[in-house]
Write a protein that binds this DNA or RNA. Structure first.
Length: 424
RNA sequence: CGGGGAGUAGCUCAGUCUGGUAGAGUGUCUGCUUUGGGAGCAGAAAGUCGCAGGUUCGAAUCCUGUCUCCCCGACCA
């Protein structure tokens, strides 16, 4: 995209409402705009990032045979009354009335809806197990929204739901999602720490949070240093969960040889048995022709929160440092050639655009310094400058956002340069 | 909900104590000069001072009410 067409407006100073670095940078880079407390408009740059994250999450869900669908954001209160959660959810649930004075709500989660759906479509054990998910906006009327999209009231979540015949099978499913989550966060460029969780309001007997390390994280963590390892993904569920990890009040203060840190919770998985299938009468016939309630699990990833979490993990004093796969633009071309008629930058732009889907050309009439600063703030992994070195040696100057390293490449070299091999 | 703070130009803030009719930086616009790290000079546009009521000759400033936002705590992807 040509930046002259991009709707954005970078800020030198950060608006005072922002307290943490990710919130400040998201505002300064024009990724989001606050509409009201805890509710945000996603501007073009932010929306590109959100979609990139969403696609990585989607890819990993699809890989384990999870079916993508889309449920409504508005739900009827009926099912919540059946499950018993209508009174329990309290003020955090946004309750609304339609013109007939029917009680509706803006969905904070979807266990009821999906359980009610599932029971009418699968009636035999032969149709199990089945996994379903969607990526959808949720609303939880948080007591105190804060830190930008980190704890918004309206937020984008991937929520998956599993249906199994019995407990044993449900545990196998749980392990599949567990490994899938590790892979998803690794693909996003993050180092996940799985933490055994208290099951809380949702209930059930098996639950893990996935935390990523960040100084500004809301949870305190204590974990075995071996959990931070490159080949964690190659270990079995049993091996991984045998290593110590805990958050907040679950931490054993007497335990030594653990690493203490802070984390941002970006995922949470639950196995909760028949908690919803029983009241909502979701059952199948087993191989003896008997009715059995399905064993269910739910698996959440905070997609919009991840944008902030990734910035918390990857930034410096000049701005964001996006992992390549997340960045709104993979590389940014800036021309500093004095000859106004030069189209070297546009030629290069067209050439690289064939190879990389999203790249940008800063064709705005601004000083070189301002363009470089914007490129750094927005967090583009590679900035290509066509200037002095091009005029003298026909070389493009390539700046690596993360390391600050500069490379000088010829016309031929730049076409084959492995830009995607970038680590922030 | 309890405790604290703040609403003045797109953004950051001064002015409020001590009432006299709106300021700075940055951004924006115009012109000229610039062109390797948020350029320089000159000029310009831009604010019902959150809202409502009150006191006063006169209110951003004092009083009352109200709304919104931010921070600390309980809740959570």
């Amino acid at each position: 995209m040509k930046l002259s067409n991009l709707f954005f407006n970078t800020l030198k100073e950060s608006p005072k409402e922002a307290q943490i670095i990710s919130h400040q940078l998201m505002l300064r880079a024009s990724m989001i705009r606050q509409h009201t407390s805890g509710i945000y408009t996603w501007l073009p740059l932010g929306f590109r990032v959100l979609k990139n994250i969403e696609n990585i999450v989607r890819y990993n869900q699809d890989k384990i045979g999870c079916n993508e669908m889309l449920m409504s954001t508005i739900q009827s209160s009926d099912l919540w009354k059946k499950s018993g959660r209508y009174p329990d959810y309290g003020k955090e649930m946004l309750r609304i009335h339609d013109r007939h004075d029917n009680e509706l709500l803006y969905g904070p989660t979807n266990e009821e809806v999906i359980t009610d759906l599932f029971k009418d479509y699968v009636n035999s054990y032969k149709g199990l197990p089945k996994y379903l998910y969607h990526i959808q906006w949720k609303f939880r009327d948080e007591i105190r929204p804060r830190f930008g999209v980190m704890r918004g009231r309206e937020f984008l979540m991937k929520d998956a739901y599993s249906f199994d015949l019995d407990h044993k099978s449900a545990v196998d499913t749980y392990k599949i999602f567990f490994k899938c989550y590790l892979q998803t966060f690794l693909d996003l460029g993050l180092q996940p720490i799985p933490v055994k969780a208290a099951t809380g309001a949702i209930g059930g007997d098996l639950s893990h949070e996935f935390q990523i390390l960040a100084k500004t994280g809301e949870s305190e963590l204590a974990y075995d240093s071996k959990l931070v390892s490159d080949d964690l993904i190659n270990k079995s569920y049993e091996e991984i969960t045998s290593m110590y990890s805990a958050s907040d009040e679950m931490i054993d203060r007497n335990k030594s040889d653990v690493v203490i840190g802070r984390g941002i919770e970006v995922g949470h998985i639950f196995n909760f048995g028949i908690k919803y299938s029983e009241p909502l009468e979701c059952y199948v016939l087993n191989n003896e022709g008997k009715r059995v309630n399905l064993h269910m699990g739910s698996y959440g990833i905070g997609v919009s929160r991840l944008t902030a979490a990734i910035i918390e993990a990857y930034h410096d004093e000049n701005g964001i440092k996006w992992p390549f796969q997340i960045s709104p633009f993979k590389l940014n071309i800036i021309s500093a050639l004095k000859n106004e008629n030069s189209i070297i930058d546009q030629d290069l732009y067209l050439k690289l655009k064939n190879k990389y889907e999203n790249i940008s050309l800063d064709d705005r009439d601004l000083s070189l310094g301002k363009k470089i600063k914007d490129s750094e703030l927005i967090g583009v992994p590679w900035t290509i400058i066509i200037g002095k070195n091009y005029e003298q040696n026909k070389q493009f100057e390539i700046i690596n956002r993360s390391s600050g390293e500069k490379l000088f490449l010829s016309d031929n070299e730049i076409e084959n340069f492995p830009f995607e091999q970038y680590t922030p």
